[in-house]
Design a protein around this nucleic acid. Structure first.
Lengths: 133, 133
DNA sequence: CGGAATCCCCGAGGATACTG
DNA sequence: CAGTATCCTCGGGGATTCCG
């Protein structure tokens, strides 16, 4: 019994931590933003409404699956709205909601820090790699 | 020949996109921040220097492998400094660099948006799930 | 104490094919 | 046009073991 306890304790601690962790608002937001396609979609929509196929074209590397999945998540989170026009063929437009727009300054802030400090980071990396030959 | 061209073109487009994409400073930063453990480590270090084992204890759910890996990456990027004291047993302290500290306001901004708007997001989700029964 | 090395599993996500 | 469904691969990351 007791021999297993240590491992079990660690695992339970991890599970409890994960449970707590997944509730953290900052984490939820980071999980969204960090998704490879999310910021690209948001940025693409910043200029205004956009059709599905236009998004697919603008975001060159995306697969249909991931574009659709990303849009669904963003729609569910209330960051993007989906408007279906039942013409033939169907037409679907996506657009940032006010909530989605409120997120853009944060995206801009991230871009700003990145562009301001990326060279410092690059230099640090070169130095690190040089030292740890 | 020509029958393969379409698929090949897509793949090459994706590769070219990935290559371009991986160069984007904002993406690099997001890739760092989005790492599950990075923000936790940075936040833990915000209060001041901290030993390896202290970090391991503070960040309850982390495995040694991921803690070490995270610290290595942060050190390489110049966001965290590592100080080794060759006593017996060895003692290692980690600390935010000025560059690392300059990142904290951004982390705070993320936290701020998350806490301010997470309820809107939750409501949007509930509504979405209710509509799409 | 503070790691490095190895094994192994699981799930994110791309390719492909089909549909309203 | 705008998806949905299925299959399959590839690598992130936990558990475990060993080292200075």
């Amino acid at each position: 019994m007791a021999t297993q306890t240590a491992a079990e304790q660690r695992e339970e601690a991890r599970k409890a931590f994960d449970a707590y962790f997944s509730q953290c608002p900052s984490r939820k937001l980071l999980d969204r933003l960090s998704d490879k396609w999310v910021t690209l979609v948001l940025t693409a929509l910043q200029a205004g409404p956009c059709r599905y196929s236009d998004l697919a074209r603008r975001i060159a590397g995306v697969s249909q699956k991931m574009l659709t999945q990303t849009l669904r998540v963003l729609e569910r989170d209330g960051l993007v709205s989906r408007t279906l026009t039942p013409s033939v063929p169907v037409r679907v437009d996506y657009e940032l909601t006010p909530l989605g727009e409120s997120l853009m300054p944060l995206v801009a802030a991230i871009k700003s820090w990145a562009e301001a400090h990326i060279e410092d980071v690059e230099r640090a990396r070169e130095h690190y790699d040089a030292v740890n030959a």
